[in-house]
Every structure is written in C-alpha cells, then in structure tokens.
Amino acid sequence: MDKIDDKPLTRWQRFKDNDIVWSFLSSPGAMIAAVVASVMILACIFAPVIAPFDPFDPAQISLWDGKLPPSWVEGGQSKYLLGTDNQGRDMFSTILYGGRLSILVGLAAVCLGMVLGVTLGVIAGYVGGVTDAVIMRLADVQLTIPGILLAILINGVGRAALPYELRDEFAIYVVILAIGLTDWPQFARVARGATLVETNKEYVQAARIIGLPSLLIMSRHIMPNTLRPILVIATIGLALAIISEATLSFLGQGIPPTTPSLGTLIRVGNDYLFSGLWWITLFPAVALIVLVFSVNLLGDWLRDALNPKLR
C-alpha cells in the first residue's frame, strides 16, 4: 500500500487481505484444485438435475442398450456419452449418482470422526489427569492398527450384527460408522495439543475466574481456537475417507450394487475388464482419482498456508 487510507476498509477488502485468502489467490495449483473439486462436488449434488438418465428408474433402462462403448468409439450412441454398463445404465449418469454417494459417505464419516475426535481431544486436554490418560491411551492403541483393517473389521461386524434383510438398507450407515470410528484418533491428538496450548492463555484463565462452567469454556472458548489445524486434518481426512469407502465397496464390503458408489462401480466394471469393456471401470476410476487428487491438493495447500513456519 503506497498511501495511508483512513477510510475504513470495506468487507471485501478486509476479506482479500486475510492471509489465507491471499495465499489462496496467489497459488494457482490450489485454485485449480478448488475449482475442479467444487465443480465435481456440485455436479454430484445436483446429479438429479444434470444427469440425462435416472439409473435407479427401471423404466429408463433397457438391457438392449447394455455394454455400449462411449459415443466417440465405433458402435457407441450419441445419447450415451460415456457408454453404458452391463445393465444398460448410462455411465455418465451412474457416475454422477455414484459420486454423490461417495462424497456423502466421505463427508459424513469425516464429520463423525471430527466431532468424536475433537470432543474427546478437548476434554482430554482440558481435564487432564486420568481422563486424559485413558482417552489418549485408547487413541494410541487404535493407531497401532492401520485404519483400513479396522474399518473392514468394524464394517464386517456391523453388517453381521444386522439382520440379513436390513443389511443392504443400512449398509451406508455401517460404512460411515466404520470409517468415522477409524479416524477419530488423528483429530483427538491435534485437538488435545491445541487445547493444551490454549488452556494456559489468559482468556481461558479469565473465563475460569469469572466462574464459567467448564463445559462452556471448552465448547465456546477453547474449541473454536483449535479449529485451524483441525481443518487441515479434515480436508486430508476427506480424501482418505473417500478412498476408504471406495476400497470397502471394491472389496464387496461397502455400498451394495443396487445403489452404487464409485467404488462399487469400479468393482462391477472389473468383472468385465477381461472381455475388453474398459469404459465400465475406467470412467468411475478417473472420476474417483480426480476427486481425491484435487481434495488432496487443497489439503496440502491448506497445511502450508496455515503453518506460519513454512511461509
């Protein structure tokens, strides 16, 4: 700034001068990733509006149109842009609906893990003593076993505990629970660390002295101040959760083929790969990779932007 302006800054100017926004506007990789991720997420959310076909409506599916290649390949039809799968469903529409499910499960699982982890982490950091030891030991124990194994196990037990006829119906919730329960220790560790720093600051001491209840101090004063590092873990966690869901579904442990997610689509397509029907696998896989890659890029950028040491 070349001259001192005594007019108060407008909201937009203040927004633009925010260090994170500035860092975002000056890193092209992050901007491209953000655009790609938001276009994909919006397209999936509005799948019912955008998709040319409804893959769940039997009236719109014709087995005669099954296994058609993409429209630009010989034998493809122009109304099926990316071809059709083995049941005659339009690949483009199915991917949109599948992506919607994948993103939904990923978001829900991360939220579950975050709420659980942050709550336990803040309590552990603020209360200390035995509570702290118990919670953090539990997190340590869970971290000794890799997430994907634990998710498979929780998911398997969850499914087995349900009566047979309800399994498909509740599969989504079981998957969300399995992934969410797997990734809480990361959140708990970071939240606890941030809480330990905040607890010794003056505003928390002041809040204690005026006699605010501990619950209020934790939820209204400490928790908002732990959110910056949590945001980074949540972004990278979203990419991991989407991969975990796809992996579970690919292993046949996740979302059933009647309401396919991206992982389920790849699993189904894999059975047709040897007969040369590459598009049933390739397009969902590309959608999955691009989605995860752009979320990962965003997470990477966010970690650098929020870490003043690296600037």
């Binding site: 990419a239 796809a246 690919f250 894999n270 696998t281 990779i289 890029l297």
Partner: peptide, 14 residues
C-alpha cells in the same frame, strides 16, 4: 502426490 491419491485397488486394476 498423484500416487497418494491413487487407491491401491485402482493401481492393481490398471
């Protein structure tokens, strides 16, 4: 970074 984003099973299928 692309490698981190590629799920193991997709690499295998590829």
């Amino acid at each position: 970074l692309a490698g981190v984003s590629l799920p193991t099973f997709v690499i295998g299928i590829g």
